[in-house]
Design a protein around this nucleic acid. Sequence first.
DNA 1: ATGGTGGCCTTGCCA
Length: 262
Amino acid sequence: MPFTLATWNINSVRLRAGLVERLMREEAPDVLCLQECKSPVELLPLEGFAALGYEHVVARGQKGYNGVAILSKLPLEDLGDKDFAALGHSRHVAARLENGVTIHNFYVPAGGDKPDRAVNVKFGQKLDYLSEMRDWFHAERPEKAILVGDLNIAPREDDVWNHKQLLKIVSHTPIEVDHLGAAQEAGGWVDITRQDIPQGNLYSWWSYRSPDWDAADKGRRLDHVWATADISSSAHSSRVLRAVRGWEQPSDHAPVFATFDL
DNA sequence: ATGGTGGCCTTGCCA
């Protein structure tokens, strides 16, 4: 049974519930993972989602910041959440589909402006968060699992609009890329998006501060779809829906899709 | 080196 999964940093799900519903109507992924919902779970606008067939929800939230949700047409079992780096933030939740596939939905800390933990606590928290992800995956050895989310790191040179210019910019520094790679390696995670689209520049985020984001195209690939090796060969049809970044009152992120034949 | 935009916890904080 093939199923299609999408990940999207929505930057306030209550403000953009209409955009979520539009994506559900037009693209109809079986599972839609959201980050930065910025809402307590009890205030999520779930009625409209359920009316479109997304009746199954596993979410964590808090007022104003962070928040992750898995909205699904398929039944979900809540597998809980982990508070990596003990931040007390809603940045992870996991669920299992009836076919036995586990889905991890992550919103990794952005890390502040200065890439130096001695002067920027948030950068240290980001690195610690990634180290604890690494340790957890090393202990858990995930199988039949998919990891998606806004990982707030663009690891490859062609994941950013200008590699050299961004080497000291948080999201593309070598130490962040190393930490992300260690977490990926520890879980045996395969980068599904790059398995399907191995060549060429690919972005999922364009800053609001860029006056003409589309023409300037100063993007970064911050949003990822990973899978464990045992199911990675069943993945195909990865794509970034860049046009969604151009919708009315958009999120600064575009959704990333993949399909799995399982 | 700086500031640019956007959302919410608002007159600052976070991304």
